Amino acid sequence: MQRWWRVFYGVIIVGLVGCGAATPTATPVAKSRVQAVLAASNLVVGPNRLPIGLIVDGSPINDPNVQVKLRLYYLDGTDAEKTQVAGEGSADYFGQGLPAGIYVTYPDFKKAGDWGVEVEATLPGKEPTVSTLRLSVLAQDPTPAIGSKAIAVDTPTVKTAPDLSQISSDPNPNPALYQLSIADAITSGKPTAILFGTPGFCKTATCGPSVTVLGNLQKTYGEKMNFIHVEVYKFPFSESVQANPPLLVPAMAEWRLQSEPWLFLLGKDGTIVNKYEGGITTEELGPMIDTILAQGI
């Protein structure tokens, strides 16, 4: 699981196989009553979704009224670059239905290497508090990149495994999310949303809410696009979770995923249009889906 969740919830998380990747990392370098934490496991050169969590007095918060501003510095640059603001902006709140709020901005990192992020958080009725993170930005994306073709995998469906309890750890699996495999969806001529997550064993407590969001989006958009949930662990799930290393479904390896949950949005030609690591909300995904459908992507 992602390194940030270990800080965020103050628990030791037994990660998925390979999830101990060293980069990128988020190392707090300044102590404060309000401390920012990075809510992502990898950042790359180019456009990114940068989610930030906030810990206040030792506990994660979920407050839409907190104002968050970010300033970026390129720490591997010249002395001038290290102190010059390379980008700044406000972060949008997305925490509806999640156990903790995330505050998201969308920077475009021009260079690989170490970056500094100055996070200014203003709680209601309080003075602004600044904390600092150090990020490692990778030259190449280890996960399927935006703009690349989705990887065709014959994931389980209601046709291949009628007993949904064997293909999803969700205690109440929604049949609508298991009608097509990833391979089928890519060639369907429709946009697709694919969520990799394990509702029954997600130690971050975000997978279950994310699967619920996916089901609600499926009800909203109906026949206009495909919605697929891919379970992370092989059946029987509890045995796979306890195995050393844990036993993951083939799709996790094929998509080179070392953390979860992940949500990928595909255009009708199977190209990855956008992706989201960690908990998702209707408020963040809905506008992007509307754009994809309106533009016929």
Rank of each mutant, 00 (worst) to 15 (best):
N42K: 10
N42G: 10
G97A: 08
N65P: 06
G279H: 09
L217N: 03
F201E: 01
V45C: 09
G267T: 03
W115H: 07
G101I: 02
D184V: 00
T282R: 11
R49S: 11
P28R: 13
Y103M: 06
I55C: 03
Q218C: 11
S32W: 05
S181C: 06
P173Y: 11
H229S: 12
G15L: 10
W255H: 03
I52A: 10
P64Q: 08
N62F: 07
K224A: 15
V153E: 05
G101C: 07
L16T: 05
V29A: 13
D170C: 03
Y276E: 11
A251C: 10
F237C: 02
S131D: 04
V232Q: 03
T271D: 01
L263G: 01
N226E: 01
A30E: 15
F237R: 00
V119N: 08
P173L: 13
T143H: 14
A253G: 12
Q140H: 13
F227L: 01
A243D: 11
A80W: 09
L16F: 09
S136R: 14
Q166Y: 07
N62D: 11
V56M: 10
T129I: 12
F227E: 00
L75Q: 14
F109C: 07
F94L: 07
F109L: 06
A86N: 07
P261Y: 02
E283D: 14
I182Q: 02
V273E: 13
G116T: 00
A40P: 00
K275W: 02
T155W: 00
Q258L: 12
K275C: 05
P99E: 02
L177K: 03
A40N: 12
D108E: 15
K82G: 14
P64E: 06
A91R: 08
R3F: 10
G77D: 08
K275M: 04
G279F: 06
V119G: 05
T25Q: 12
I280P: 04
F94D: 04
G87K: 02
F196V: 00
E120R: 12
K219I: 04
D79C: 08
T281I: 10
V104H: 05
L138E: 06
Q295A: 12
D184G: 01
T157P: 06
G58N: 11
I13K: 08
V11D: 11
A121K: 00
Y178C: 08
S210Q: 07
